[in-house]
């Protein structure tokens, strides 16, 4: 044990903290974007307008059938080429690793949040839709004031669970060399040859944060069951 130097963690804390900031920022942005656009996509999937629901379900199925890493790569390497092709620029238009990560995570998460939200909307009894129609609400008012509030109330635990998965998945940004929490720790680990110390620390932090969040989910689940 004498060979271990856990002080390396203390020394690199400010750097690690920056990495964590990025990780949380990415998680939060992808979650907000995912839930917002996922809601719209879910409404499109459930729409009676056939082309709309076809396009929406096509998107969801596509995103759910390819690995996230591939989406990240695709954005990082192909979008600059597409940009070049569209604008006719002499060189590929780089969009930057951090932007790539934000966009690709959001696009990917939209599909997953969409499926959760779709199930949530479908869990609201038909009678509620009838009542919402009967008081004169338009389609969007029915959704906004009657269906979605109830659906989200039921869905909060599942949405948070998906966010825990998202939080862990953000570590995949290492493939395009973005310095997130794991990336920062990895760099320090390589530089100081303190792999065991750094990776253990990272594991502990991921565990503590995910576990705390999943306890919160458990609590919310019980509360909702009592309220319902």
């Amino acid at each position: 044990m004498g060979d271990f130097d856990f002080d390396v963690i203390r020394r690199s804390l400010p750097y690690l903290f920056k990495g964590m900031e990025y990780t949380l920022g990415l998680t939060f942005t992808a979650m907000i974007g995912g839930i917002f656009f996922g809601t719209l996509l879910a409404l499109a999937r459930l729409s009676a307008i056939a082309p709309l629901s076809l396009v929406a379900s096509g998107y969801v199925n596509l995103m759910r059938s390819i690995p996230l890493v591939l989406v990240i790569f695709w954005f990082y390497f192909l979008v600059p080429l597409v940009g070049q092709w569209i604008t006719g620029a002499p060189q590929p238009l780089p969009i930057g690793a951090e932007k790539t990560a934000l966009v690709s995570f959001t696009l990917f998460e939209i599909a997953f949040y969409c499926e959760i939200i779709r199930a949530g909307i479908q869990s609201i009894p038909q009678g509620q839709i009838g009542a919402a129609k009967a008081v004169g609400f338009t389609y969007f008012q029915q959704m906004r004031y009657v269906i979605l509030p109830q659906a989200f109330q039921n869905m909060i635990p599942i949405l948070l669970s998906q966010t825990i998965v998202l939080f862990q998945d953000t570590s995949l940004v290492y493939v395009i060399s973005v310095t997130d929490f794991l990336g920062a720790a990895a760099k320090v680990a390589q530089r100081d040859s303190r792999l065991v110390e750094m990776y253990s620390f990272v594991a502990v932090i991921y565990f503590v944060m995910s576990f705390a969040l999943s306890r919160l989910v458990r609590r919310l689940q019980t509360n909702i069951r009592i309220a319902g």
Partner: peptide, 29 residues
């Protein structure tokens, strides 16, 4: 929607909006 706003309907299973208080049920529409 306009037509329905002039026609009151009462359902077998009440169908009050469970996430709203009683007064909000009466005022929202």
């Amino acid at each position: 929607s306009k037509l329905r706003s002039q026609v009151g309907m009462v359902f077998q299973h009440f169908e009050l909006f469970p996430h709203l208080s009683i007064i909000d049920n009466l005022t929202i529409a």
